[in-house]
Design a protein around this nucleic acid. Structure first.
Lengths: 252, 252
DNA sequence: GCAAAATATGTTAGAATTTTACACAGAAAA
DNA sequence: TTTTCTGTGTAAAATTCTAACATATTTTGC
């Protein structure tokens, strides 16, 4: 219930841009002001809002003024991505080793991953930082040249890491998808890395919000039959779902 | 004069991200707090900053993804560290390759590093993200297990990176220093990494704020004679300075 | 299933910040 | 020169925030 309330506050703030504590109290009459304050504090620590005198405002609101590449990108289709991330997080079992990519969807996943004893490998700096907050979790970041647009690393050197590391599960996301061209992204080194991940992981879960369907990016790193589970939102077309389920791929 | 002051405040905020009123007062000792408040109000109305409790933050800063427990830690001895970082940043030439560690002092250095064409290697995630904001600069992050307390990576695997990379200069900082025990830190893998850096770099610059003098941490990674330049603050004891200059080490 | 621990919440007092109001000085305008 | 306006300073008042503790609720470990 706390989690729900905090999500609701974040949504409200994203919608309204700015809210005073007084306003928040009318929205949540059954909890005390202090609780709302504490909720705001948490949201601030998550980086989703900033607290100002009297209340708080959403980070998105601030970003309207000027657009930093990464932050801006992660502002679109927030709700879908969070829901997808929640679904994905539910599939993670204690004790497992998994790979998570460095995209914006993965960032939401990182926030949803429970604080249990698991090993996570990632090429995303922001993802790594988010995961490092959790006590029981072990994070390893892949080294390499930092790509400025999405704050993830990708380099041929990353292969070296994989020679000594193992993970059962990889949860990754794509920038684009069509049935013909498969899952694709905009960077060749990233595609190379993800191909490697695909080969290394026993299971491959793909997160794909429906806004990416029908788009094609230059580098394909996986096809329909390569994945085990597709995690998406309600707007995912039924006829496409067929294509996956026919190949025994779970769509959720 | 009012216009100039307001511009200066805006610039300061863009650089530092966040300032308290108290800090602003030390920057502008000749005007009253109330005047500064009024300045901030104007900047807020212009959309350039956001006023938060205690002070204000630049709009740019809000867009950052940075990790919070880390941010908290970096609040102590801020002013000294910034001054040290500024000195260090002044020593960086265009076109060079350098290594920067992942500590809090390094974080300030990252903010001060000019946006020129250089290659930077680092094991600090927050440092890497900060540097990734700069267009002309090329950042490479060392992979490895993420240490939760300081958001940097350290792993034996990092050595692999060094086989193929070269840098003339390393600017690093220590958690503790005594003349007898040298420069030390709290993590063995980090110490190993820094030793490697020391060997690899042609020049080694050490940032050390005076609060760290006299402390001893478990793992020493460098001694007095290993470094080329020591960058410190005004409170650095004169008798210690002797020890360095005797060995032809520049203290600044 | 129970006890212990951890987490979440409520209540208050006190601290800190911000605002308001008014006074004063100096520059610009009449 | 006088008046007006802008910039500034001072201090009290209003508001917001934090800290501390008490209580409830949930989770965890056995």
């Amino acid at each position: 219930m706390k989690r729900d309330r905090i999500e609701e506050i974040a949504d409200l703030l994203d919608k309204r841009g700015k809210l005073t504590l007084e306003q928040l109290e009318t929205f949540f009459p059954h909890v005390s002001q202090m609780t709302l304050r504490r909720d705001l504090l948490q949201l601030e620590q998550l980086g989703r809002i900033i607290r100002v005198r009297g209340g708080a405002m959403s980070v998105k609101e601030v970003q309207k003024v000027s657009g930093e590449p990464y932050a801006k990108k992660s502002a679109i289709h927030t709700d879908e991505k969070i829901r997808i991330a929640q679904k994905a997080a539910g599939l993670i079992d204690e004790g497992c080793s998994l790979f998570v990519d460095g995209g914006t969807t993965a960032m939401y996943l990182a926030k949803e991953i429970p604080d249990i004893s698991i090993n996570v490998f990632t090429n995303g700096l922001a993802v790594a930082i988010e995961l490092a907050q959790k006590k029981n979790l072990n994070v390893t970041v892949l080294g390499g040249q930092v790509m400025k647009d999405n704050l993830s690393t990708a380099s041929p050197v990353a292969k070296m890491y994989f020679s000594d590391t193992n993970f059962e599960l990889a949860i990754i996301s794509a920038s684009a998808f069509t049935p013909e061209n498969g899952f694709s992204c905009g960077s060749q080194v990233e595609a190379d890395l993800l191909k490697l991940v695909r080969q290394k992981a026993k299971s491959l879960y793909m997160m794909l919000d429906s806004s990416k369907i029908g788009k094609i990016m230059p580098y394909t790193f996986a096809h329909v039959e390569d994945i085990d589970v597709l995690i998406t939102d309600e707007n995912f077309p039924a006829e496409l779902k067929e294509k996956f389920t026919q190949k025994d791929i779970v769509v959720m």
